[in-house]
Design a protein around this nucleic acid. Sequence first.
DNA 1: ATCAATGGTGCCATATTTTGGCACCATAGC
DNA 2: GCTATGGTGCCAAAATATGGCACCATTGAT
Lengths: 218, 218
Amino acid sequence: MTVAEVAAEVGASRRTVLRDISALRDEGFIIHTDPGRGGGLRLDPGSIQTTVRFSVIEVFALLISVETMRAAGNLPFSSLADAGLAKLEKALPSDKVRDLRRFLDCLYIGKMAPQVDLSDLGTMDPELLPAFETAFLQHQYLRFQYRDAKGSVTRREVEPQAMLILPPVWYLVAWDPDRNDFRHFRMDRIRQPECIEDRFFRRRYVPFKEQVSQVRRM
Amino acid sequence: MTVAEVAAEVGASRRTVLRDISALRDEGFIIHTDPGRGGGLRLDPGSIQTTVRFSVIEVFALLISVETMRAAGNLPFSSLADAGLAKLEKALPSDKVRDLRRFLDCLYIGKMAPQVDLSDLGTMDPELLPAFETAFLQHQYLRFQYRDAKGSVTRREVEPQAMLILPPVWYLVAWDPDRNDFRHFRMDRIRQPECIEDRFFRRRYVPFKEQVSQVRRM
DNA sequence: ATCAATGGTGCCATATTTTGGCACCATAGC
DNA sequence: GCTATGGTGCCAAAATATGGCACCATTGAT
């Protein structure tokens, strides 16, 4: 298109369109121009940028998802996804980036344990991530309802110490003060999670043995 | 904080700050106010929205990553990630959404084949996704350099028919006209991909057998 | 060589939008 | 009742965007 055509289309003057083009170039759009008779404007489609607005927790969820995928060695087209990730992370306020790092420090990934029963694999409670965010970062106790493999439901009150992924199952690794030992809880079996103001200290969690690596970032 | 304090901090008038607060509320920020002596403003931290600008191909890469993760049954905190995904998809121009769907139609995921040698697992060529986008959506031939398991390098010219994920390895499934059969190419062994204008017809690809499902969306 | 069609820039008056100040209202605590 | 707070309507002033004009550079057609 020529500048005059664009101006007619949007109902602005030639001068304004030229100014807008200059502004768009400053914003990163790549617009080729050909002067002279038969010339005009060409917008590089690859340079089109779309604007997305996220809440902080959404960025958090996306980053954790993709980081986990990377840790599983399963991130395709990584340099492009990386660029997107970098933008996501840059969008987070700096204190939230610190939180994210600390959260990822608690995240471990391993191979699937072959003997796990997947027939009843459910979805996680939507409140789980916000609850984890508080529980892990503030070292607060977590109280929840847990349905074990046999179907019996109990109420637990534990110290969240780590998260363990044995794809496709996610586990909460927590110190159970009642039983004085670590326990693994399948996240899809947790309901009604809530944090308790009381604080605890972090314990040393040694994941099973080999075959488990930490989802680290930078 | 009080409005007067905010005004002093940002160097604007009380009136302007009040106008800006009203605008922020229109944008979805949740700001509680307490009138009367000792009152002031309180910003709900959960309502903070950050603005991120993506190129179309970055959105594409992120969506493919997360969709694949979902197909692998490995998407944690899904309702929150979903909200982020929905925003990402909404940010795509509608013709690109159609492209994305068609691209995902070509994507299959299965269990890891246990006998694969992962010692030389490399990273994909950054040009691979843009090349795939053209090759799969325009049904164009793909030409590339391929280094096989023995290390010998050949040049190929094939019809891209599907992508197969056997985590953590990604394969291009393509019809090789020279050999008159389907061939599987590990994506991390592909270099210098480029599309050729010639078109081909889609062939019926039947992935191995069971254990492989399609990464479908909606 | 000349001419017309194109992008591009500088300048300035005009149009539009934003800002600041003021008066005033409602509410809550002292 | 007084004071400190958020909130609104109004209007003039300040800031910004727009449109018009003159003019330059480049390119292709005549």
